[in-house]
């Protein structure tokens, strides 16, 4: 389920989810808006990994797609 990125590398959705939703700095506090749904999002996205057209649909779901710096490298 690869998504083409720069340098001939493929970005697998599963790799991205394992990082962006499971790692990285967690900064909590009173001023943080509650995103209690994040765990649910993760479950939902995991299910979608098996879907054949998930990545293409994801690309289409974001008008303008990825920022230019990334999109340029897909050429």
């Amino acid at each position: 389920m690869p998504l083409e990125t720069g340098g001939g590398q493929d970005l697998a959705l599963s790799d991205l989810l394992d990082r962006a939703l499971d790692k990285g700095v967690v900064l909590w506090g009173e001023a943080t808006v509650s995103l209690a749904g994040v765990d649910l999002v993760y479950v939902g996205l995991k299910v979608l990994i098996g879907s054949v057209d998930a990545v293409q649909r994801m690309r289409g779901a974001a008008p303008g797609g990825l920022p230019a710096a990334e999109a340029d490298e897909t050429a």
Binding site: R19, A20, L21, K23, G24, V25, V26, L27, T32, L35
Partner: peptide, 11 residues
């Protein structure tokens, strides 16, 4: 870059 976990939102 120090990435924050997806979903970090403030008022």
């Amino acid at each position: 870059v120090v990435p924050f976990r997806f979903g970090t939102l403030f008022h």
